Simulated scan of single mutants.
Amino acid sequence: MGSNNYDIDEEFPLHASAGASSERIDRRQAEESGNGDYDLLGEFLEAAKDETTKTVRFPVPGRKGDWILEIDVVISESELKRYNENALIGKARQGKPRKISQANMFAQMIAEKNVGIYKGDGADPAQVMDSDDEPLVLVSEQFLESVGEPNDVRAAVRKFLGDAGVGALGAAILLEAGWSEDLTPLDPTER
Rank of each mutant, 00 (worst) to 15 (best):
E85F: 10
E79M: 10
E70D: 08
A48F: 03
R57C: 03
V73L: 10
K91A: 13
D66S: 14
D50W: 12
E77W: 09
F44C: 09
V74T: 15
K91H: 13
E51C: 04
L88S: 03
E46G: 06
E79N: 09
R82L: 14
E46L: 11
L45S: 09
F58G: 00
G62V: 06
D72C: 05
K64I: 10
N86V: 07
G65C: 00
V74Y: 08
N86I: 05
P61R: 01
T55H: 12
R82I: 11
E79C: 05
E46I: 06
S76Y: 00
I68P: 05
F58C: 02
F58I: 00
K54H: 14
F44H: 08
E51I: 07
A47Y: 06
T55S: 13
K54R: 15
L88Q: 10
E79W: 08
L69Y: 05
G62M: 06
S78I: 08
A48R: 07
D66A: 12
V60T: 13
R82P: 01
K54W: 11
E70R: 09
R82T: 15
T55A: 09
G90W: 01
P61W: 01
L88T: 10
G90I: 02
K64F: 12
L88A: 09
A87E: 03
E46W: 06
K49L: 15
S76T: 10
D72S: 08
R82K: 14
V60G: 04
S78W: 04
K49S: 12
K64Q: 14
E85M: 11
L45I: 08
D72P: 00
P59Y: 04
E51F: 07
F44Q: 08
G90P: 01
D72T: 04
L69K: 02
S78N: 09
W67D: 01
T52Q: 12
A48L: 13
I89E: 13
F58P: 02
R82S: 14
R82V: 12
W67V: 06
E79G: 05
L88E: 14
A47C: 11
A87I: 02
I75D: 01
F58M: 02
S76M: 03
E79A: 14
F44I: 14
D66I: 00
V56R: 11
W67G: 04
F58V: 03
Y83Q: 07
A47L: 14
V60L: 11
D50Q: 15
D66V: 01
K91E: 15
T53W: 07
D66W: 04
E51G: 03
P61S: 00
S78C: 02
A87Q: 03
K54S: 15
N84C: 15
G90E: 00
A48P: 00
L45A: 10
L45Q: 12
G65H: 01
Y83L: 08
A48N: 05
K49G: 11
